[in-house]
Simulated scan of single mutants.
Amino acid sequence: MQQVRSFITDERNLLGICAALGHDFGFNPLFLRLILGVSLLWNPEAVIIAYACAGVFVLVSHLLFPGSRGKQQRQVTA
């Protein structure tokens, strides 16, 4: 049985927001990190606000629908 990985406690992530969004929507989180990093040069306030909003979105979606993405992937592989 596969252990469920937490994005917040994983030592490879700072807060796990980009990793969680990448996992939930099926893309590589490196792309989001690059976009946010480059955007910090032009408008840091907007990027920080957008990152905080994304964090709230991830928190709420994971509280309302715990493990729903993992269940879909397990059904496909089974």
Rank of each mutant, 00 (worst) to 15 (best):
L30F: 12
T77F: 02
L59A: 15
R12W: 02
M1V: 10
A52E: 13
V56H: 06
F25P: 00
R33I: 12
F27H: 09
R33E: 14
K71Q: 08
L59E: 13
W42K: 08
L40V: 06
P29V: 02
L14I: 04
G16T: 04
F7K: 00
P44C: 02
S6T: 11
V56P: 04
G67N: 13
P29R: 00
F65V: 04
R69G: 04
Q75A: 15
A78T: 09
W42Y: 14
H62V: 05
N43D: 11
L32I: 00
G16P: 00
S6V: 07
V47S: 08
C18L: 04
S61K: 08
V4H: 13
D24Q: 10
F25A: 11
Q3F: 08
F57S: 08
V4K: 14
N13H: 15
C53G: 12
R33Q: 14
W42S: 09
R33T: 11
V38D: 07
G16M: 00
A20G: 09
L30C: 09
Q72M: 03
A78R: 10
R12E: 14
L64W: 05
L64G: 02
F31C: 02
H23E: 12
N43V: 05
R74G: 00
C53V: 09
A52S: 15
D10M: 00
L14A: 01
G22A: 07
Q2S: 13
R74V: 05
L64F: 00
R74N: 10
I8K: 12
E11W: 09
A20S: 15
M1I: 12
F57V: 00
V76G: 03
L14H: 08
P44R: 03
G22M: 07
K71M: 07
C53R: 05
N13L: 03
G67W: 02
G55W: 03
L30V: 07
G67V: 03
L36E: 11
S6W: 09
F65S: 13
R33C: 13
A20H: 06
I8G: 02
N13S: 01
Q73N: 05
V38T: 09
L59C: 15
Y51V: 02
R33S: 13
F31T: 04
A54L: 04
S6Q: 14
F57W: 06
F7E: 01
H23K: 06
S39D: 04
R33Y: 07
I35G: 07
V4S: 14
A54N: 03
H23T: 02
L34N: 06
I49Y: 12
D10S: 08
L41G: 08
Q2D: 13
L63K: 15
F31A: 10
G16Y: 01
L36H: 01
T9Q: 10
A19Y: 01
A52D: 13
Q2Y: 11
G26M: 06
